[in-house]
């Protein structure tokens, strides 16, 4: 099996690539992986160093919007797993142009290439943020989309486009919608790696508003394992929610991070809340549990402790990224 992984140098994509090459996924043993990544600020070839010497892995520095390039890559492919996206909500608030270009138009280019080359299988990776905020309960896959940020709106656009290529053209595409990911190799602009890397350097951390926003936390290993399950056994045209089962307010998350780094609340600076900041996301994962037997396996406390240790041990990985993005 030969799989094209877009965004495979990013946080979640590279996890999927490493685990695939390590033969961690039933049904994907021995698969060849071609990574296509534009290496924008968050793409990092060092995320792929552990498997870089595998003869089953190859890398293409390219843009998913480049249809001509896709035509050179698609012959011989059995599947595409599409991670490539602009993903940082704060950046989409400042300028949404690249979010629409990459997330919507890029997905369209991939879907069209899939049609041109009669691709057998396509998995489109998306986010629970497309559902919008929910006060109580959890969204299932039937819920109408009400995205609130330019980021989630662009992802919702790409989801609907992917779904339409199944309805209109019969493309064998499934869509996954995950909750908030965490784990090693997470770019240090996102809340957990930002807080951890700041706190272990005795620097302050910014907390939005009152910190009452609630997120479900999903370990990246659980997420990519679920994606592999969908790739192998998911049904065409179907959407699968993927959650981690640990809901925390940002305040609770901050407390856990302070505790695990031996710091107190004097290291926390309250900052004005983000525009359009959704209060709570929560996904119902009973569909993927029932159909594909998925259940999250990494307990949050263990996952978080491992992440803190990983950032302590891998300063050479995150320090240059932080300097580059001028983040504090």
């Amino acid at each position: 099996m030969r799989i094209l992984v877009t965004g495979g140098a990013g946080f979640i994509g590279s996890n999927f690539v490493r685990r695939t090459i390590e033969d961690k996924y039933p049904g994907l043993e021995g698969a060849e992986v071609v990574v296509l990544d534009a290496l924008t600020y968050s793409g990092n070839l060092q995320n792929l160093t552990p498997i870089a010497d595998s003869p089953r892995y190859s890398f293409v520095h390219g843009d998913i919007r480049d249809g001509k390039l896709l035509d050179t890559l698609f012959p011989g492919l059995d599947a595409v797993v599409h991670f490539a996206a602009e993903s940082h909500v704060d950046r989409s608030v400042m300028d949404s142009t690249i979010f629409v270009e990459t997330n919507v138009l890029g997905t369209q280019q991939l879907l069209d290439a899939a049609l041109r080359h009669n691709l057998a299988r396509f998995v489109h990776v998306s986010t629970d943020e497309v559902y919008g905020s929910i006060a109580e309960g959890s969204w299932n896959e039937e819920r109408a989309l009400e995205p609130n940020s330019p980021y989630s709106a662009s992802k919702a656009g790409s989801d609907l486009l992917a779904r339409s290529y199944h309805r209109t053209h019969g493309l064998n595409v499934s869509i996954t919608r995950c909750s908030n990911n965490y784990g090693p190799y997470h770019f240090p602009e996102k809340v957990i790696p930002l807080f951890v890397s700041n706190l272990i350097d005795d620097a302050h951390v910014p907390l939005y508003g009152e910190g009452n926003n609630i997120r479900d936390w999903l370990h990246v290993d659980d997420h990519t394992r679920a994606i592999a399950m969908v790739l192998v056994g998911g049904r065409a045209g179907e959407i699968y929610n993927i959650g981690g089962g640990t809901e925390l307010t940002n305040k609770e998350l901050t407390q856990l991070l302070l505790t695990s780094t031996g710091k107190d609340w004097s290291y926390v600076d309250r900052v004005a809340d983000r525009l359009g900041h959704d209060l709570r996301y929560s996904v119902d994962i009973s569909k993927i549990q029932a159909e594909l037997g998925y259940a999250p396996e990494v307990p949050f406390e263990q996952g978080l402790a491992d992440v803190v240790q990983w950032y302590r041990d891998n300063r050479q990985w995150w320090e240059p990224l932080k300097a580059r993005a001028a983040l504090t």
Binding site: A9, A38, L39, G43, N44, Q46, T49
Partner: peptide, 13 residues
């Protein structure tokens, strides 16, 4: 810029 993006993606390049 394209080449630089590649170079920046791994400090060993």
């Amino acid at each position: 810029d394209w080449l630089r993006g590649c170079g920046e993606s791994d400090s060993r390049i």
